[in-house]
Design a protein around this nucleic acid. Sequence first.
DNA 1: GTTCTCACA
DNA 2: TGTGAGAA
Length: 110
Amino acid sequence: MDQKKDDISALLDFDLLKRLVVGIGEVSRITGIPTRKIRYWEEKGAIQSENEQEGSTRRYDYLNVKKMLLIQEMLDEGFTLDSAIEKVEKRMVTLDEAFKKLADTLEDDK
DNA sequence: GTTCTCACA
DNA sequence: TGTGAGAA
């Protein structure tokens, strides 16, 4: 009976995932991308760190980590950094819109 | 450990 | 496009 409601809750839990953040060191260790390059990409607008008020250490959520891996692959395939950023950005928008529609669908027949 | 900037390839 | 090095 509350199954659909649970499904919606599962979708909304993405907000929790978005808050799963790690420092630049961890990202570097996990992805194999040098910290220097991560900052460089951020400077070029590929990713946006969530600087919490205290301290100045960058923090990246899993979406940004995903972006980095995606961009890294595209660069290996011969894309320029700018085109890679552009394509990744579109993918994020497309995915976001799709999930919103999916959530709306579940809301409608609740 | 993290940050930044300047310079260099 | 990406790195090295120094300094904070």
